[in-house]
Design a binder for these strands. Structure first.
Lengths: 154, 154
DNA sequence: ACCCTCGCAACATATGAAGTTACATGAAGC
DNA sequence: GCTTCATGTAACTTCATATGTTGCGAGGGT
């Protein structure tokens, strides 16, 4: 199964944005993520609609963070992406007539629901500010550069 | 994202097998699951190798359960399928050089690991015997047939 | 006027689960 | 022995969807 990496990707982008004062263009982000400007815009669209980031057109335009990093949790970001499916496994049939399948679905769904609740709670307890702090701790521990372009320059 | 329904499917098959004394052919299962005999065999191969079921060729052949239902947990079945990925979301890059991505991965992986532990623990606490009991409770509550072929006809 | 940059639709590619076909192997019945 | 029934497995096709690409329009700076 191909796994959805939008959450991972958008968090990466957001933290890099937090390191610069000026707007970051989709193109610069795409280079950094070894991806594509259109893909970036697609991912960011949900965050923009949710009010976490702003986009500006024209010269000097690009993306900027619109809120305090401490006010954005991973859960917020996840929701802004449209709350995509968390689990790679699903039920063969939903609302089946077969009682066996109903029993199976009930057991699996119960387990998935609990795991999902735990996961979302964890997501809700991590802010971008927390991630950024972790990031800066890693910088100190390694002495490496934090420049978006050079860090990702192949 | 397309979701893997092998776990759901194999549990369904196993519980139906438990309802009959005689071996069930892949063909009969496929009809019941609106699937294909080869797909069934593919799914069952892991369970056979794990010793949970037996297969016999020729006349009167097919699949039979090789162990007490109370001795098989959902976790065993999951493992017999090869422990496929549980989550639909993954990291954009594993072992990234970028410290930002390392921080992001660390946070996400921690949350996933906890959710996975919970999920597997839940799976480990549910036996096929338990599912079967739930199934029989549903039969009593509804008065429906339990025949594999008729339940799934149409 | 001319660049930039986002917005977005439409199309192309890649990956993996599910489904299909084909043939070999082995067991039961005749 | 031969036919029939069943699994075992490889190779192929189909289908869904995340990701990548192209193209064009709109809006904003120079």
């Amino acid at each position: 199964m191909k796994r959805d990496s939008r959450l991972s990707g958008v968090l990466h982008v957001l933290l890099h944005m937090a390191e610069t004062q000026s707007p970051v263009t989709s193109e610069a982000m795409a280079r950094a993520m070894q991806s594509n400007p259109v893909v970036i815009r697609r991912i960011m669209a949900g965050l923009r609609d949710a009010g976490f980031v702003r986009s500006e057109k024209g010269h000097g335009g690009g993306w900027t963070i619109a809120r305090d990093l401490a006010a954005i949790t991973l859960r917020d970001v996840y929701a802004a992406l449209g709350s995509p499916a968390l689990f790679a496994m699903g039920n063969r049939t939903d609302a089946p007539g077969c009682l066996v399948e109903q029993a199976v679905n009930a057991a699996l769904n119960g387990a998935y629901a609990d795991a999902e609740a735990l996961l979302l709670e964890r997501f809700g307890s991590v802010t971008l500010a927390g991630l950024s702090a972790d990031f800066h701790a890693r910088i100190i521990a390694s002495g490496k550069s934090i420049d978006l372009e050079t860090v990702h320059a192949a």
